[in-house]
Computed example of a mutant assay.
Amino acid sequence: MKVRFLICSLFLISVLGLKAQENFSANVNFKTEPTDKINFNETDIAIFYQKELGTKSKIANTLDYSNLKVNYEFNPYNFYEDQDKFNQIQDKFEYSYEMSEKTKWQFSIVPTANFQSNLDFSDLTVLGSLAISQQIGSKVNVIVGAGRTSIFGAPKITPIVAFDYKMNDKTDFRIGFPDSKISYSNNVRNKFSLTNSFNGNFYHLDESINADNNAEKAVLSQMTSALEYERNVGGNWFLNFKAGYDFDKKYNLLDSSDHKVYDYNTGNGYVLGIGIKYKQ
């Protein structure tokens, strides 16, 4: 009941906010990440909207639900027989303000509930970030900041650095941490991107599962390089495809002090994804 109430409440807040929207999108994505020992399959549903507040400030909100299913092909000890499904409900609120014509700062707060099947208040975690961007000339933008993120699995403070360069009307270039990207659009319907990102997540384990080994979190992290393609298939509808590879992939169990309890040694693997999006 707690899970259903929280999900319904978050979606109700987002729907009410759509009355004042200026930009809106909704998307569903499916992703598979097989490795030598374990296969990961994730379904993600997200709703995004943003609104300008006057001429200098803007707010944006993204409500996201994801379900991760884990298939253990090699399981000699049944050590993780119940750790095959993880859930996340996340709401990202962003506020940006133009301090001057070329300087802008952005603040985000991200309450997130990461759990298996039993949602509890102890599963709630607050992430977020603060960054400043500085426009240099007409083509270059530099971003610096820091945030509490889960890109390395367990939540921790990480830097944010990016150098954006608009090469021409068709090509954009970003190099930075945790994300880098080159985008090319040959017309209004096609967009190609080459991306590299450090990304990860964590999930609180149910009490019945961690009783024997003191594990309290399952954490995943990797660096992903991928080729992505987005196609406008008509009107406001878009299809997107993703193919890439995970490097330095880790899947561990941690105790209450974030010390490693168990390492699954998954090895690296490729990534395949497909999604559909409506945006206006």
Rank of each mutant, 00 (worst) to 15 (best):
K191L: 04
F152R: 11
D164P: 06
N236K: 15
S193M: 06
S185N: 12
F192Y: 08
A146F: 04
N232E: 02
D172A: 13
T158P: 11
V219D: 00
F121R: 10
V161C: 11
D179C: 07
Q116D: 11
N190H: 04
I132C: 06
Q106R: 13
I175E: 02
D172S: 14
F152I: 03
F115G: 02
L220M: 13
A113N: 04
W105E: 05
L119S: 00
F177S: 08
T224H: 12
G235P: 09
L119C: 01
F198P: 04
F115V: 00
N214P: 05
I109Q: 13
K181A: 12
L194S: 08
K170C: 08
N196A: 15
V110M: 03
R174L: 09
P155Q: 01
K217Y: 10
G128E: 01
F177T: 06
A218Q: 14
S183P: 11
L239D: 07
F198L: 14
S122N: 15
S208R: 15
P159D: 06
I157V: 13
V110H: 00
S138C: 01
P111S: 05
K181D: 11
I209P: 05
D179S: 14
S193P: 01
N118P: 10
D123N: 07
I160S: 01
E216D: 10
